[in-house]
């Protein structure tokens, strides 16, 4: 898949923002006043910033409100609703904490649940696509939720929780990569089933429909060099898990924590770039590109 910056930034940043909102909703840390304001400001900057990036992906962003209409069938529409509900409910909890120095448990817990539900719905947009076997597995929501949880714990300063969470996340990611590399072959879809000609012999794409490129090839047939992909996976692991865990293991201070957070963000973006760039859409089979 074409690794569009808008979608990578959207899923990475809003995932982290909703992860932080989740922990703030749980009261971890239990802050009020100015400290609560700073935490919520960071969470909203990431969550809303990510959502704004997502609109750059649209051909007609001026019609984006129409995306709220089809929640019965469409995960993208459900995500729009859940994101708005999570932001509104968490916002009420934030106002209570910041300006009235009180915490309303029911609202804060509901905000936390809606935040994670938003991340789950984002993941389901990808997980539902049978056309991309690498995404069409439970690993997709597990990883999206994992990144959101571990990143949220890190942002919220929950060091004792963030360290094991990042280690588990790294392990899950490695397993998911290994599974993903086999996903297309295991899916049973190949040029033989795509053309329906497999029962008479081996099928080879002889001539493409046109000499130039097209929307389908640009959008769906992005190929990453295998060597580069392996290096990028290691870089992603070092950035999103290795570096923060190491820095958190040292004596705690705000500079080290900031470095840990910056490394984590860079790692999440690298990993999310790979999520898109390495995803093989079955339409590539018709072009002999798989």
């Amino acid at each position: 898949m074409h690794p569009a910056p808008s979608v990578i930034l959207f899923t990475s940043l809003s995932g982290l923002g909703f992860g932080l909102l989740f922990f703030l909703g749980l009261g971890m840390p239990a802050s009020t006043g100015l400290v609560a304001f700073v935490f919520y400001a960071i969470a909203y900057a990431f969550a809303v910033g990510g959502l704004i990036f997502s609109t750059f992906h649209l051909g007609h962003p001026e019609r984006a409100l129409k995306a709220f209409t089809q929640w019965r069938s469409s995960w993208l529409s459900r995500e729009a609703w859940l994101a708005v509900m999570a932001l509104c409910v968490s916002g009420l909890g934030a106002i209570a904490q910041i300006f009235f120095e009180t915490r309303i448990d029911a609202i804060s817990y509901l905000g936390a649940a809606l935040s994670m539900a938003t991340v789950f719905s984002t993941a389901m947009i990808y997980r539902q696509l049978a056309t991309i076997p690498r995404w069409h597995t439970p690993w997709t929501p597990v990883l999206f939720l994992g990144y959101s949880f571990a990143g949220g714990a890190l942002f919220a300063g929950q060091v004792s929780l963030a360290m094991p969470a990042l280690c588990v996340l790294a392990a899950l990611q490695v397993v998911a990569w290994m599974q993903g590399d086999r996903a297309l072959a295991d899916s049973g879809t190949n040029l033989a089933t795509a053309t329906g000609l497999g029962d008479r012999g081996s099928v080879r794409a002889f001539e493409p429909p046109h000499t130039g490129t097209n929307y389908l090839l640009k959008e769906f047939v992005y190929v990453v060099g295998r060597k580069h992909a392996a290096k990028l996976r290691i870089i992603a692991l070092i950035l999103f898990a290795g570096t923060p865990v190491l820095l958190l293991a040292l004596e705690f201070n705000h500079i080290l924590a900031l470095l840990a957070v910056i490394a984590h963000i860079a790692g999440v973006i690298t990993s999310r770039w790979l999520f898109f760039a390495q995803a093989e859409h079955v339409v590539g089979l018709y072009y002999g590109k798989r």
């Binding site: 051909g59 007609h60 056309t131 795509a194 097209n214 959008e219 769906f220 339409v283």
Partner: peptide
């Protein structure tokens, strides 16, 4: 009503949908 998000083209295994480069 189309916002040009492209998700329908992602969901089609046959490459039957193309986002128009101008519109």
């Amino acid at each position: 009503d189309c916002i040009g998000c492209g998700l329908c083209a992602w969901a089609c295994p046959y490459g039957a949908r193309e986002l128009d480069g101008e519109e």
